[in-house]
Amino acid sequence: MRQICIIAIREFNDGLRNRRVIATTLLLAALALTLALLGSAPTGTVGVGVLSVTIVSLSSLTIFLVPLIALLIAHDAIAGELDRGTLLLLLSYPVARWQVLLGKFVGHLAILSFATLVGYGAAGLALAFTNPVSEAGAAAAFATMLATSVLLGAVFVALGYLVSTAVRDPRTAAGLAIGLWLFFVLLYDMALLGTLVADQGRLLSVGALNLLLLGNPTDIYRLLNLTGFSNTNLLSGMAGLAGQMRLDRITLFAALAVWVVLPLALSGAIFRRRQI
């Protein structure tokens, strides 16, 4: 535990030192504030609350940006240290390999959580001040979005480690990380949509669709944030899908947690067998 903390603190401090924390926080805050303050313009004075609109736009932003940031931080964790020769020395110390991996995970997740909570939190606070009229359930939906954004980040940090432990060259790891991002953020949903259109509901049952949605962490994130709250549901165009959904929120959260644990455990297993 002690060793994990020492490594986690070093990773976070490294993030502060190379300005990764501040850059990520500023980026997320700037985008979130822009979306929150300008993005409510299209709704005009229609009855829909500003916070719902913001949650929908911020969720869409998160799906693109958070996995990318997480992979950028994580893909270098092992392969990069191995390449620079710092891993050799670290592993000669009384610290187990799983402790190194878990310590880095905690440190990297802390960086990502800090950026997300501060960046998005700033947008939330700005909205609360400018629109004192409260929407029922909106605060809870916003909190869910913050929590799931961090969780989504954790998924992609874990996936980044999987890439980082599986290959030797940090450039290969970077390439694979970009590939993972493209696959989960763009290609998977396009393929799924294409299949659904072509299939016209003949072969693909609702159960199968549910399973396919669980196969992509960004889809789980989408389901959790865009279908949970009735206003966002309508706004995001997810209402149709939500009606078909048979997955409750516990299952969705559990599935996201599995998406964190599984790649992390796998990368730990690879790292343990690794010849340095």
Partner: peptide, 29 residues
């Protein structure tokens, strides 16, 4: 490993850290 000291062939440290901080990290480990 508590009682082992190792100096690798091409010693590399992260460049943004100070010497004292680096040594503190390894001493804690």
């Amino acid at each position: 490993r508590m009682a082992v000291g190792f100096l690798p062939e091409n010693i590399a440290f992260s460049p943004s850290i100070t010497g004292a901080e680096l040594l503190a990290f390894y001493a804690r480990l």
